[in-house]
Simulated assay, not measured.
Amino acid sequence: MVQGHEAEPAGRPVAAGTVSAAELFDGLGIAYERAFGRLPAQLAAVDWLTARLAPGARVLDVGSGTGRPVADRLARAGCAVTGIDVSREMVELARAQVPDARFEQCDVRDYRAPAGGFDAVCAFFPLLMMTRAEACEALARIAGWLAPGGYFVSATVPADVDGVQIEWMGSRVEVSSFSAEDYVRRLREDCGLEVLHHELSVFAPEGPGAVPEEHVFCYARRPLETG
């Protein structure tokens, strides 16, 4: 996909003929996990993260979906996990599948968290069904939620597009994204994060009509405060 997550607020209308992120993922439900739940680069990113977190670390999973594999893997590693997603169906699935984590139906654009309130944040593909300006604002807010030394592990579909309509998993959606180079630059320069690692990979989802997608994964860290 060139894809994202209480229902989307009034005042954020979607383009005619397209569906919102909440509508899309309510309709997909568990089918999304079947298609994307075994993404090797995502599993590697979560394992990299858990190896660096102490037991009880506070982790936010933005666009938590069905809870699998990300929140489930984090909870099994002993993290205190909060997941947020715009889709009611996804939140209900996640609560059933990952009872050791806490899930809220909420858009990241509306979510409120204390500055430095999380030891890590995961954001795997939740910003694609926003405008570029909204995605940039969301990334900056996420960076502010990290404690000094906290980690941000994320992924997106790299593409130099803003407000483009595409067909994805049987629905018409409007998406925006950044090139891989621009995404990494924004994390460094706009969000003030130290990018520790980034890589491009290609994944072929399971299911009829699925096509391979290019992904960029980034591991980043909020610098420790000095002075």
Rank of each mutant, 00 (worst) to 15 (best):
E137K: 08
S87I: 00
E89Y: 07
H5F: 15
T66N: 06
G27W: 04
R38E: 08
E214V: 06
G78E: 13
I166L: 10
Y32T: 04
V14H: 13
W145S: 02
E167Q: 14
A133P: 07
R58A: 11
A115G: 07
G65K: 02
A77D: 06
D72W: 08
S201T: 11
A101Y: 02
G4F: 08
L146T: 00
F152N: 03
V2T: 11
C106R: 09
A220L: 04
L39E: 04
V19S: 11
V46A: 02
R102P: 08
G150A: 13
M130C: 10
R185F: 09
Q165E: 14
V2Q: 03
D162K: 12
G63Y: 01
D85E: 05
L224W: 11
L74S: 00
R52S: 05
A204I: 12
G37K: 02
G209A: 11
D100A: 14
Y151M: 08
W168V: 04
A135E: 09
W145H: 02
F103A: 04
D26E: 11
V98C: 07
P212A: 03
G83N: 04
F124I: 03
D100H: 08
A51E: 05
Y151R: 07
A80F: 01
P13T: 08
L49F: 00
F203W: 10
C218Y: 03
R185V: 13
E104Y: 12
E213R: 12
D85W: 01
V14N: 15
V202C: 09
T156L: 04
E167D: 15
P114D: 06
L60G: 00
A204G: 12
A21S: 15
A7D: 14
P69H: 12
E6N: 15
L146I: 04
E89I: 01
M169R: 14
P208T: 11
A180W: 02
T66I: 08
L28A: 04
R102I: 07
R88P: 07
D72L: 10
R112C: 08
R186M: 12
A7F: 11
R222F: 02
F178V: 08
L60Q: 00
L49H: 00
A77W: 00
